[in-house]
Amino acid sequence: MAHSMNSISGKTEATKTYRRDIPNTWWLKKGSYFLFILREISSVFVALYAIFLLIQLCALSGGQERYESTAAVFKSGWMIILHVVIWVFVMYNMVTWFRISGRIFGAKPLSPVLVTISNYIIWLIVSIGIIFLLLKG
């Protein structure tokens, strides 16, 4: 609520701020709005995976029995489906992140596309490294 001085009476008088009514479905109106909301939601899944890692580490510190019962939960069908959903959102988060990196760091003599592509190349090398370490380490 904004206040304005009434020049004639000198009294302070409440005036109403004009607020355009934005429907709750604004993010369905345009493709780019929808992708924006998807990007914001993707961070929820990023956090969820970090919490899952923490839960698994917690179980590991609680001894063999507790670790194995927790590991069994993470092997159940609905947990695998949830991880596929998490993975899709985290991949989307990655795509948007590399696109933003291009815009931020892509000043001359570089270009946004060049920065984004080099991000993907580094991502590929890092991912292969992680997978190699997890499978053979």
């Binding site: 961070s43 990023v46 995976y49 899952f52 993470f74 092997k75 947990m79 695998i80 991880h83 596929v84 998490i86 993975w87 985290v90 991949m91 988060n93 990655m94 992140w97 590399f98 991000n119 580094i122 991502w123 890092v126 991912s127 992680i130 997978i131 997890l134 499978l135």
Partner: peptide, 17 residues
Amino acid sequence: AAFLLPAHIFIQGIAIP
């Protein structure tokens, strides 16, 4: 989240289970 998580989620959360 961009560089490390996708590979970890894929192996630990999907491929192994």
